[in-house]
Write a protein that binds this DNA or RNA. Structure first.
Lengths: 225, 225
DNA sequence: GTGACTTTGTGCATCGGTTCACAAAGGGAT
DNA sequence: ATCCCTTTGTGAACCGATGCACAAAGTCAC
């Protein structure tokens, strides 16, 4: 006799974690359209993955499906949200209020569920004091104070490359351990700190590589012997 | 007897391709600082990877190092650039000139090497005709014409989610096969079309997952009795 | 209650990527 | 020319992720 619908494995594969938000989005869409139940096959199509992979991913959270029927949409939304930690509210700070920082501050998409932009911070006296997306821009000198005051636990770096490492060091010093970095630099951080990196230029370069391949490759003519 | 310094393997692993831009950036920095030669160990540190991986990655391009010495910085920059297709100029169209589209248009970083924002396109009559980052915003009705006229081969989608699939279909219909998608939707595309996806909300959710883990897990209290 | 049908959850083979560890290759000193 | 030192390039073991294919588990109709 064993507890049946308990998450059995606390170690969820990284690849699975990266796909859970995808499933969640698809499920939200279905919930809005009033769909109560969904099969792994249908959900897989909606999320753009194959159904075996989807089932294996979900099986890491627990046994939440019903054989012969599928998954209850509402229930699965709840379970995935809980697993991802979206049942609580995360305070996010955006450091660097240039074009990108502004765009992020105004981007409704991520504010929606679980995340809240708690503060905007910049070094330029020209923008400090401005109100962007309903928030007052604070001065970088206040960085540590604001992060503590607002209970920020996730920091988004949208600074110039040259400033990123310093800001990174400072926020880590006050206890932040999750960073989303848009600056085109490799940040060095101590163990226990998670950095995720978004780099537009790298994405374009990868596309260019494949585009070039389609067109015949860099050394078409030299096709080995 | 075999040709010695020829790229031997035309099939470069995807994981390697994704790291080449990283190496390239580190190398550019070194070139600017006047460094002529670099060991795999030093370059690996600068790029934030381990040196065995770096050497294996570079070995896929050919044998461009000198044992006992390292790699010639300039030469390696050239070889990687060539492999990634950055020796030619890629015309990029940005569709959707909201906050994000504007930020991308103004982002100097990717315009620098190999890429050129050739046109901005939007559906909102309010912004069509405006000049942003030195470019006239064209109307979405002109999408196909502009793409052909400007020789665009890479399209960046920064539209609302609801519009992304339609724009995607239209640009594919006129021959575009490389798309960078910022809209939070799963695009469905025919074989032969590459889509890369950047989703801010997903990145935050992955961070939240790990942050929650550090704090003790989702159901600490319910620790399976 | 029984049987037919559907769909999950997973064991297993496979694959791509990472890491180790070392032989091969080159440079520089003598 | 020979030896020693450094660093590359790669064979081989390992590790995690993917996908197939099917038994187990449940529903529904009668």
């Amino acid at each position: 006799m064993k507890s049946p619908s308990q998450p059995r494995d606390r170690g969820i594969p990284e690849a699975t974690v990266a796909r859970l938000p995808l499933y969640l989005r698809a499920l939200h869409g279905m919930a809005e359209r009033g769909i109560a139940t969904v099969s792994s096959e249908d959900l897989a199509v909606a999320a753009g993955v194959n159904s075996a992979k989807l089932r294996k991913d979900l099986s890491h959270l627990g046994s939440y499906g019903t054989r012969g029927v599928g998954y209850d949409v509402e229930y699965l939304v709840y379970q995935i949200s809980r697993e991802l930690g979206l049942t609580q509210d995360w305070a996010v700070a955006i450091v660097g209020v240039g074009n990108l920082g502004r765009a992020l501050a105004n981007y409704g998409g991520f504010v929606s569920r679980g995340f809240r932009v708690a503060t905007l911070i910049d070094a330029d006296p020209e923008v400090v004091g401005d109100t962007i997306a309903g928030l007052n821009v604070e001065h970088i000198d206040e960085l540590e104070a604001v992060i503590k005051r607002r209970g920020v636990s996730i920091v988004v770096l949208a600074t110039p490359a040259a400033a990123a490492q310093e800001v990174c060091d400072r926020v880590i010093a006050v206890g932040v351990t999750s960073i989303l970095n848009f600056a085109p630099v490799v940040l060095s951080v101590p163990d226990g700190v998670d950095v995720r990196k978004v780099d537009l230029s790298i994405e374009l370069q990868i596309l260019a590589f494949h585009e070039q391949r389609k067109a015949g490759g860099p050394l078409m003519a030299v096709e080995s012997q």
